[in-house]
Structure formats: structure tokens, C-alpha cells
């Protein structure tokens, strides 16, 4: 269950994270000394889950599509689902040298783009992630969720700063860092 890791860094030291994928960095152990930015352009009902341990300089982000995985199916992209992604991303961080008690979370996304009665995916996603984080006792220190606009999120693994811009805003807001 480790499908969907993105390691490719483009020329501008940026990693684009597609839906259902994740990226993880330990900047101390990084031989190339590259500290990339991880970004998602156009978050709708999806959620960007950002976890980091700044003391040990480990950070990760996942792009979550759905609140819950279905049982008894082979799952190739666990980070598609909130319940699995939260657990796995924490585990990955620890595997890369993070201390569990230092891990902090930031969540971005979960908006409702089409005005449909049935369209609660964004809200459900946000709820599911918060529940899971609470269960695992990870503190959320930054949040930008809900609303009816898409978002761009950029996470700088260099200084753990998070920048968010909604579709109709001109400039990025600093959410953390």
C-alpha cells in the first residue's frame, strides 16, 4: 500500500501533486539539498493534507479525493481516501525520521464547486480528515476549508510555510510559516 508517491521535482524545484498521490521529504537526509515546494493547482472538493515535524525537518503532503475507502477491494492509491491517507502519511513521516509527538497538520480544500444538493463531498472529506486526525491525536494548526471556490495551495518544505489562494483572489495568503 505505497502507491502514488511523487518524487519528480521539476526545474523550478516544484512538485505537482495529482489526486490520490503524496510526496514526502526529509530535508536533512536529502543528498541533493533540494527543498522543493509541493503544490496543487485547482483544489475543489479534494483536500490537501500537510503534515510536518519541523524539529526533524520531515514533511509530507497528500491529495485526498474521498472520505472513506471501501472495504474488501484492492487499493492501489490509498491516498485517495481520507481514512487511509492520514494513517499512512503519519507512518511515512515517522519512517523518514519524524517523531510522532511533533507532527502537526494543516488542511486546505473541501469546497463545493457546483451548487448541487447531493454535492457534500468537500464537507464530508473535511469531516473525515478531522476525525481521523483527532483520533490519532495530531493537532491541526492551520486550516482553510469550505466555501465555493477552487484553491491553489503551495507548501514550501524549506520553511514549512503554506500559501493558499482561492480562484478569484489575486494574491496568495500565508496560512502558516
Amino acid at each position: 500500500m505505497t502507491g502514488g508517491r511523487v518524487e519528480k521535482i521539476d526545474r523550478k524545484d516544484e512538485i505537482f501533486l495529482p489526486i490520490g498521490h503524496y510526496a514526502i521529504f526529509n530535508c536533512k537526509n536529502n543528498p541533493n539539498k533540494i527543498q522543493p515546494k509541493i503544490s496543487i493547482y485547482g483544489l475543489g472538493s479534494c483536500i490537501a493534507l500537510i503534515l510536518f515535524d519541523y524539529k526533524n525537518n520531515v514533511s509530507g503532503m497528500s491529495h485526498i479525493l474521498l472520505p472513506k475507502s471501501r472495504q474488501n477491494k484492492t487499493i492501489n492509491f490509498p491516498h485517495k481516501y481520507a481514512n487511509l491517507s492520514v494513517k499512512l502519511l503519519i507512518q511515512e513521516l515517522i519512517n523518514h525520521g519524524a517523531m510522532r509527538k511533533n507532527i502537526k497538520a494543516i488542511i486546505v480544500g473541501g469546497s463545493k464547486i457546483f451548487d448541487l444538493d447531493e454535492n457534500f463531498m468537500g464537507i464530508d472529506n473535511t469531516k473525515a480528515i478531522k476525525q481521523e486526525l483527532e483520533k490519532l491525536e495530531i493537532k491541526i494548526i492551520g486550516e482553510n476549508t469550505g466555501g465555493s471556490e477552487g484553491r491553489v495551495v503551495i507548501f514550501d518544505t524549506n520553511d514549512f510555510s503554506v500559501y493558499v489562494k482561492s480562484t478569484r483572489e489575486k494574491d496568495f495568503k500565508k496560512l502558516h510559516g
Binding site: I19, G20, I40, Y41, G42, L43, G44, S45, C46, L65, L66, R70, K73, N76, F77, K80, S111, K112, I113, F114, D115, L116, N119, M121, G122, E149, G150, R151, T167
Partner: peptide, 24 residues
């Protein structure tokens, strides 16, 4: 129909969520 003005990724998110529940 429902109308939304946004980036293509944001527009498609909810639709992908609906149709990619059982399959990749």
C-alpha cells in the same frame, strides 16, 4: 444543469470523486 466558473481541476474534482469511487 449547474454552472460553475473555476479552474478545470476544481470543476472536475467533485465529478472525479463521484465516478472514481469504485475504480481507479
Amino acid at each position: 444543469p449547474k454552472i460553475a466558473i473555476d479552474t478545470i481541476n476544481a470543476i472536475l474534482d467533485g465529478i472525479i470523486a463521484k465516478y472514481a469511487q469504485i475504480s481507479d
